[in-house]
Amino acid sequence: MTEMTFADAVREGLAEELRRDPLVWALGEDLSTAHGGTSANQYVGLIDEFGPKRIVNTPISENTIMGAAVGAAVAGTRPVADLRMADFGMCAVDELVNQAAKIRYMFGGQARVPLVVRQAIGVRKGAAAQHSQSTEAWYVHTPGLVVVAPGTPADGRGLLKSAIRADDPVVYMEHKDLWLASGDVPDDEGVVPIGVAKTVREGSDLTIVSWSKMARLCEEVADTLAGDGVSVDVIDLRTLWPWDKDAVYASVCKTGRLLVAQEAVQVGGFAAEIATDVTENCFDALKTHARRIGAPRMPVPYAEPMENEFRVTPERIIARARELLAA
Protein backbone atom coordinates (compact mmCIF):
# COMPACT_ATOMS: atom_id res chain seq x y z
CA MET A 1 0.00 0.00 0.00
CA THR A 2 1.07 3.54 -0.73
CA GLU A 3 -0.66 6.61 0.59
CA MET A 4 -1.56 9.11 -2.06
CA THR A 5 -4.22 11.64 -2.95
CA PHE A 6 -7.24 10.80 -5.06
CA ALA A 7 -5.98 12.99 -7.92
CA ASP A 8 -2.56 11.33 -7.87
CA ALA A 9 -3.99 7.83 -7.65
CA VAL A 10 -6.31 8.37 -10.56
CA ARG A 11 -3.52 9.93 -12.61
CA GLU A 12 -1.38 6.86 -11.86
CA GLY A 13 -4.23 4.62 -12.92
CA LEU A 14 -4.64 6.51 -16.17
CA ALA A 15 -0.91 6.38 -16.85
CA GLU A 16 -0.91 2.63 -16.25
CA GLU A 17 -3.75 2.17 -18.73
CA LEU A 18 -2.02 4.42 -21.27
CA ARG A 19 1.07 2.21 -20.97
CA ARG A 20 -0.96 -0.99 -21.15
CA ASP A 21 -3.03 -0.15 -24.24
CA PRO A 22 -1.85 2.12 -27.07
CA LEU A 23 -5.46 2.74 -28.07
CA VAL A 24 -6.17 4.56 -24.80
CA TRP A 25 -5.90 8.35 -24.93
CA ALA A 26 -7.20 11.37 -23.07
CA LEU A 27 -8.69 14.64 -24.22
CA GLY A 28 -9.89 17.74 -22.45
CA GLU A 29 -9.14 21.33 -21.64
CA ASP A 30 -5.76 22.20 -20.09
CA LEU A 31 -4.56 18.59 -19.96
CA SER A 32 -1.06 19.34 -21.14
CA THR A 33 -0.49 22.72 -19.56
CA ALA A 34 1.35 23.27 -16.30
CA HIS A 35 -2.06 22.98 -14.67
CA GLY A 36 -2.36 19.40 -15.85
CA GLY A 37 -6.13 19.41 -15.59
CA THR A 38 -8.67 21.47 -13.75
CA SER A 39 -6.63 22.54 -10.73
CA ALA A 40 -5.74 19.34 -8.95
CA ASN A 41 -3.02 18.26 -11.40
CA GLN A 42 -4.95 15.16 -12.46
CA TYR A 43 -2.97 15.03 -15.70
CA VAL A 44 0.27 16.76 -14.82
CA GLY A 45 3.31 15.18 -16.45
CA LEU A 46 1.37 12.78 -18.67
CA ILE A 47 2.11 14.88 -21.74
CA ASP A 48 5.84 14.23 -21.25
CA GLU A 49 5.44 10.48 -21.30
CA PHE A 50 2.63 10.06 -23.81
CA GLY A 51 2.87 13.06 -26.12
CA PRO A 52 0.28 15.34 -27.70
CA LYS A 53 -1.50 12.66 -29.73
CA ARG A 54 -2.54 10.80 -26.58
CA ILE A 55 -2.82 13.65 -24.11
CA VAL A 56 -4.83 16.01 -26.26
CA ASN A 57 -5.13 19.56 -25.00
CA THR A 58 -8.43 20.72 -26.46
CA PRO A 59 -10.16 24.00 -27.19
CA ILE A 60 -13.02 24.99 -24.90
CA SER A 61 -15.43 23.02 -27.06
CA GLU A 62 -17.44 20.68 -24.87
CA ASN A 63 -19.66 19.47 -27.70
CA THR A 64 -16.62 18.36 -29.61
CA ILE A 65 -14.69 16.98 -26.65
CA MET A 66 -17.60 14.63 -26.06
CA GLY A 67 -18.51 14.12 -29.72
CA ALA A 68 -14.92 13.44 -30.72
CA ALA A 69 -14.65 10.90 -27.93
CA VAL A 70 -17.72 9.14 -29.27
CA GLY A 71 -16.43 9.16 -32.85
CA ALA A 72 -13.00 7.98 -31.76
CA ALA A 73 -14.50 5.20 -29.65
CA VAL A 74 -16.62 4.01 -32.55
CA ALA A 75 -13.53 4.14 -34.75
CA GLY A 76 -11.55 1.74 -32.60
CA THR A 77 -9.89 3.68 -29.79
CA ARG A 78 -10.58 4.09 -26.06
CA PRO A 79 -10.79 7.78 -25.23
CA VAL A 80 -10.99 9.29 -21.76
CA ALA A 81 -12.76 12.63 -22.14
CA ASP A 82 -12.49 15.11 -19.30
CA LEU A 83 -15.26 17.68 -19.05
CA ARG A 84 -13.78 19.29 -15.92
CA MET A 85 -17.05 19.55 -14.02
CA ALA A 86 -20.47 17.98 -14.26
CA ASP A 87 -21.77 21.51 -14.71
CA PHE A 88 -19.82 21.80 -17.99
CA GLY A 89 -20.87 18.27 -18.80
CA MET A 90 -24.28 19.77 -19.45
CA CYS A 91 -22.80 21.48 -22.50
CA ALA A 92 -22.20 17.99 -23.89
CA VAL A 93 -25.28 16.12 -22.70
CA ASP A 94 -26.40 15.74 -26.32
CA GLU A 95 -23.28 13.93 -27.43
CA LEU A 96 -23.30 11.77 -24.31
CA VAL A 97 -27.00 10.97 -24.15
CA ASN A 98 -28.07 11.10 -27.80
CA GLN A 99 -24.93 9.58 -29.27
CA ALA A 100 -22.69 7.68 -26.82
CA ALA A 101 -25.59 6.04 -25.02
CA LYS A 102 -27.54 5.21 -28.18
CA ILE A 103 -25.09 4.22 -30.89
CA ARG A 104 -24.66 0.56 -30.01
CA TYR A 105 -28.40 0.14 -29.70
CA MET A 106 -29.80 2.15 -32.59
CA PHE A 107 -27.26 0.70 -34.99
CA GLY A 108 -28.17 -2.83 -33.91
CA GLY A 109 -24.88 -3.69 -32.26
CA GLN A 110 -22.71 -2.74 -35.25
CA ALA A 111 -20.50 -0.67 -32.95
CA ARG A 112 -19.48 -0.28 -29.33
CA VAL A 113 -18.67 3.03 -27.66
CA PRO A 114 -15.84 2.28 -25.22
CA LEU A 115 -15.24 5.68 -23.71
CA VAL A 116 -14.91 7.23 -20.28
CA VAL A 117 -16.14 10.72 -19.54
CA ARG A 118 -14.87 12.32 -16.37
CA GLN A 119 -17.20 14.83 -14.77
CA ALA A 120 -16.37 16.24 -11.36
CA ILE A 121 -19.32 16.61 -9.01
CA GLY A 122 -20.12 18.09 -5.65
CA VAL A 123 -19.99 21.26 -3.63
CA ARG A 124 -16.58 22.77 -3.25
CA LYS A 125 -16.65 25.59 -0.75
CA GLY A 126 -17.75 28.84 -2.35
CA ALA A 127 -18.07 27.45 -5.85
CA ALA A 128 -21.78 28.38 -5.95
CA ALA A 129 -24.50 27.45 -8.39
CA GLN A 130 -22.64 26.55 -11.61
CA HIS A 131 -19.61 24.71 -10.26
CA SER A 132 -21.15 22.55 -7.55
CA GLN A 133 -23.80 20.27 -8.96
CA SER A 134 -24.13 16.53 -8.52
CA THR A 135 -25.87 15.24 -11.64
CA GLU A 136 -25.35 11.51 -11.31
CA ALA A 137 -29.08 10.77 -11.41
CA TRP A 138 -29.33 12.30 -14.91
CA TYR A 139 -27.03 9.65 -16.30
CA VAL A 140 -28.25 6.74 -14.21
CA HIS A 141 -31.59 7.51 -15.84
CA THR A 142 -30.10 7.14 -19.33
CA PRO A 143 -30.09 3.63 -20.82
CA GLY A 144 -26.74 2.71 -22.33
CA LEU A 145 -24.57 4.47 -19.75
CA VAL A 146 -22.59 3.09 -16.85
CA VAL A 147 -22.13 5.51 -13.93
CA VAL A 148 -19.39 5.23 -11.34
CA ALA A 149 -18.73 7.55 -8.39
CA PRO A 150 -15.68 6.35 -6.45
CA GLY A 151 -15.01 7.81 -3.04
CA THR A 152 -11.44 6.77 -2.19
CA PRO A 153 -8.10 7.06 -3.98
CA ALA A 154 -7.92 3.27 -4.39
CA ASP A 155 -11.42 3.10 -5.82
CA GLY A 156 -10.74 6.12 -8.01
CA ARG A 157 -7.76 4.39 -9.58
CA GLY A 158 -9.29 0.94 -9.73
CA LEU A 159 -12.62 2.02 -11.16
CA LEU A 160 -10.96 4.21 -13.77
CA LYS A 161 -9.17 1.11 -15.01
CA SER A 162 -12.38 -0.88 -15.22
CA ALA A 163 -14.12 2.04 -16.91
CA ILE A 164 -11.39 2.28 -19.56
CA ARG A 165 -11.50 -1.46 -20.19
CA ALA A 166 -15.31 -1.58 -20.45
CA ASP A 167 -16.93 -1.56 -23.86
CA ASP A 168 -19.79 0.57 -22.55
CA PRO A 169 -19.61 4.36 -22.24
CA VAL A 170 -18.85 5.11 -18.59
CA VAL A 171 -19.61 8.36 -16.78
CA TYR A 172 -16.89 8.69 -14.17
CA MET A 173 -17.91 11.14 -11.45
CA GLU A 174 -15.28 12.29 -8.98
CA HIS A 175 -15.96 14.65 -6.11
CA LYS A 176 -13.91 17.84 -6.23
CA ASP A 177 -13.32 17.71 -2.47
CA LEU A 178 -11.81 14.24 -2.83
CA TRP A 179 -9.05 15.23 -5.25
CA LEU A 180 -6.70 16.24 -2.46
CA ALA A 181 -7.91 13.67 0.08
CA SER A 182 -5.42 10.90 0.79
CA GLY A 183 -5.79 7.19 1.25
CA ASP A 184 -4.04 3.87 0.85
CA VAL A 185 -3.68 2.64 -2.70
CA PRO A 186 -2.64 -0.95 -3.43
CA ASP A 187 0.73 -1.48 -5.04
CA ASP A 188 -0.66 -4.08 -7.41
CA GLU A 189 -2.89 -3.42 -10.41
CA GLY A 190 -5.80 -2.71 -8.08
CA VAL A 191 -8.63 -3.04 -10.58
CA VAL A 192 -12.00 -2.42 -8.94
CA PRO A 193 -14.85 -4.14 -10.77
CA ILE A 194 -17.85 -2.20 -12.04
CA GLY A 195 -21.06 -2.90 -10.16
CA VAL A 196 -19.55 -4.09 -6.88
CA ALA A 197 -20.19 -2.12 -3.70
CA LYS A 198 -17.92 -2.07 -0.68
CA THR A 199 -19.06 -2.39 2.90
CA VAL A 200 -16.91 0.18 4.67
CA ARG A 201 -18.41 -0.21 8.18
CA GLU A 202 -19.97 -3.39 9.52
CA GLY A 203 -23.07 -3.17 11.67
CA SER A 204 -26.37 -4.78 12.47
CA ASP A 205 -28.83 -2.02 13.43
CA LEU A 206 -28.99 0.18 10.37
CA THR A 207 -27.87 0.18 6.74
CA ILE A 208 -26.64 3.45 5.27
CA VAL A 209 -26.06 3.42 1.52
CA SER A 210 -24.09 6.19 -0.09
CA TRP A 211 -21.39 6.97 -2.64
CA SER A 212 -18.58 9.39 -3.48
CA LYS A 213 -17.66 11.91 -0.78
CA MET A 214 -20.92 11.27 1.04
CA ALA A 215 -19.79 7.72 1.80
CA ARG A 216 -16.86 9.19 3.71
CA LEU A 217 -19.25 11.36 5.74
CA CYS A 218 -21.36 8.30 6.43
CA GLU A 219 -18.32 6.58 7.92
CA GLU A 220 -18.09 9.48 10.38
CA VAL A 221 -21.79 9.07 11.07
CA ALA A 222 -21.29 5.37 11.81
CA ASP A 223 -18.44 6.16 14.16
CA THR A 224 -20.55 8.72 16.01
CA LEU A 225 -23.53 6.39 16.27
CA ALA A 226 -21.26 3.64 17.51
CA GLY A 227 -20.74 5.85 20.57
CA ASP A 228 -24.49 5.54 21.21
CA GLY A 229 -24.26 1.78 20.92
CA VAL A 230 -25.76 1.74 17.42
CA SER A 231 -23.95 -0.39 14.91
CA VAL A 232 -24.22 0.71 11.29
CA ASP A 233 -23.52 -1.06 8.03
CA VAL A 234 -22.16 1.58 5.65
CA ILE A 235 -22.19 0.58 2.02
CA ASP A 236 -20.18 2.65 -0.44
CA LEU A 237 -21.89 1.81 -3.73
CA ARG A 238 -18.94 2.98 -5.87
CA THR A 239 -20.90 2.12 -9.02
CA LEU A 240 -24.34 3.73 -9.39
CA TRP A 241 -25.34 1.91 -12.55
CA PRO A 242 -25.44 -1.00 -12.32
CA TRP A 243 -25.70 -0.70 -8.53
CA ASP A 244 -24.91 -3.65 -6.31
CA LYS A 245 -28.38 -4.80 -5.31
CA ASP A 246 -27.11 -8.01 -3.76
CA ALA A 247 -24.93 -6.16 -1.30
CA VAL A 248 -27.70 -3.73 -0.35
CA TYR A 249 -30.40 -6.40 -0.06
CA ALA A 250 -28.15 -8.57 2.11
CA SER A 251 -27.41 -5.68 4.41
CA VAL A 252 -31.04 -4.62 4.69
CA CYS A 253 -32.07 -8.20 5.44
CA LYS A 254 -29.56 -8.10 8.28
CA THR A 255 -30.43 -4.68 9.74
CA GLY A 256 -34.05 -4.14 8.72
CA ARG A 257 -33.44 -0.42 8.35
CA LEU A 258 -32.28 1.60 5.34
CA LEU A 259 -31.13 5.16 4.95
CA VAL A 260 -29.78 6.34 1.61
CA ALA A 261 -27.67 9.48 1.76
CA GLN A 262 -26.76 11.63 -1.25
CA GLU A 263 -25.23 15.06 -1.69
CA ALA A 264 -27.41 15.84 -4.71
CA VAL A 265 -30.80 17.49 -4.53
CA GLN A 266 -33.13 14.93 -2.97
CA VAL A 267 -36.08 15.31 -5.37
CA GLY A 268 -35.75 12.91 -8.28
CA GLY A 269 -32.40 11.73 -6.99
CA PHE A 270 -30.80 8.32 -7.12
CA ALA A 271 -31.45 7.68 -3.43
CA ALA A 272 -35.15 7.55 -4.26
CA GLU A 273 -34.51 4.72 -6.71
CA ILE A 274 -32.63 2.68 -4.13
CA ALA A 275 -35.18 3.27 -1.39
CA THR A 276 -38.03 2.31 -3.70
CA ASP A 277 -36.29 -0.75 -5.07
CA VAL A 278 -35.46 -2.03 -1.60
CA THR A 279 -39.02 -1.39 -0.46
CA GLU A 280 -40.33 -3.41 -3.41
CA ASN A 281 -37.89 -6.27 -3.01
CA CYS A 282 -37.07 -6.46 0.72
CA PHE A 283 -40.33 -5.24 2.24
CA ASP A 284 -40.67 -8.17 4.63
CA ALA A 285 -37.22 -7.50 6.04
CA LEU A 286 -37.88 -3.82 6.75
CA LYS A 287 -38.76 -2.87 10.32
CA THR A 288 -39.76 0.61 9.14
CA HIS A 289 -39.98 2.35 5.81
CA ALA A 290 -36.77 3.20 4.02
CA ARG A 291 -35.63 6.79 4.21
CA ARG A 292 -33.43 9.05 2.17
CA ILE A 293 -31.60 12.27 2.70
CA GLY A 294 -30.50 14.75 0.08
CA ALA A 295 -30.16 18.47 -0.45
CA PRO A 296 -33.09 20.88 -0.60
CA ARG A 297 -34.31 21.50 -4.14
CA MET A 298 -32.44 24.76 -4.67
CA PRO A 299 -29.33 25.94 -6.51
CA VAL A 300 -26.13 25.92 -4.46
CA PRO A 301 -25.75 29.35 -2.81
CA TYR A 302 -22.45 31.12 -2.33
CA ALA A 303 -22.17 32.61 1.18
CA GLU A 304 -21.18 30.06 3.78
CA PRO A 305 -24.25 30.25 6.05
CA MET A 306 -26.48 29.69 3.04
CA GLU A 307 -24.20 27.15 1.44
CA ASN A 308 -24.41 25.14 4.64
CA GLU A 309 -28.17 25.00 4.17
CA PHE A 310 -27.56 23.03 0.99
CA ARG A 311 -25.14 20.61 2.53
CA VAL A 312 -26.07 17.14 3.73
CA THR A 313 -23.90 17.23 6.84
CA PRO A 314 -23.06 14.37 9.20
CA GLU A 315 -25.28 16.04 11.81
CA ARG A 316 -28.23 16.00 9.44
CA ILE A 317 -27.60 12.39 8.53
CA ILE A 318 -27.38 11.45 12.20
CA ALA A 319 -30.67 13.19 12.92
CA ARG A 320 -32.34 11.27 10.10
CA ALA A 321 -30.74 8.04 11.26
CA ARG A 322 -31.97 8.51 14.83
CA GLU A 323 -35.47 9.20 13.58
CA LEU A 324 -35.27 5.97 11.61
CA LEU A 325 -33.91 3.99 14.55
CA ALA A 326 -36.70 5.27 16.80
CA ALA A 327 -39.42 4.22 14.37
Binding site: L23, G67, A69, V70, G71, A72, A73, V74, G76, Q99
Partner: peptide, 15 residues
Amino acid sequence: DGLTMGVGAAQAICL
Protein backbone atom coordinates in the same frame (compact mmCIF):
# COMPACT_ATOMS: atom_id res chain seq x y z
CA ASP B 1 -23.31 15.64 -34.23
CA GLY B 2 -21.78 13.99 -37.29
CA LEU B 3 -19.24 16.80 -37.35
CA THR B 4 -18.01 16.33 -33.80
CA MET B 5 -17.98 12.55 -34.09
CA GLY B 6 -16.29 12.85 -37.47
CA VAL B 7 -13.32 14.75 -36.09
CA GLY B 8 -13.05 12.11 -33.39
CA ALA B 9 -13.06 9.33 -35.97
CA ALA B 10 -10.31 11.21 -37.81
CA GLN B 11 -8.35 11.44 -34.58
CA ALA B 12 -8.74 7.68 -34.12
CA ILE B 13 -7.38 7.16 -37.63
CA CYS B 14 -4.30 9.21 -36.72
CA LEU B 15 -3.80 7.41 -33.42
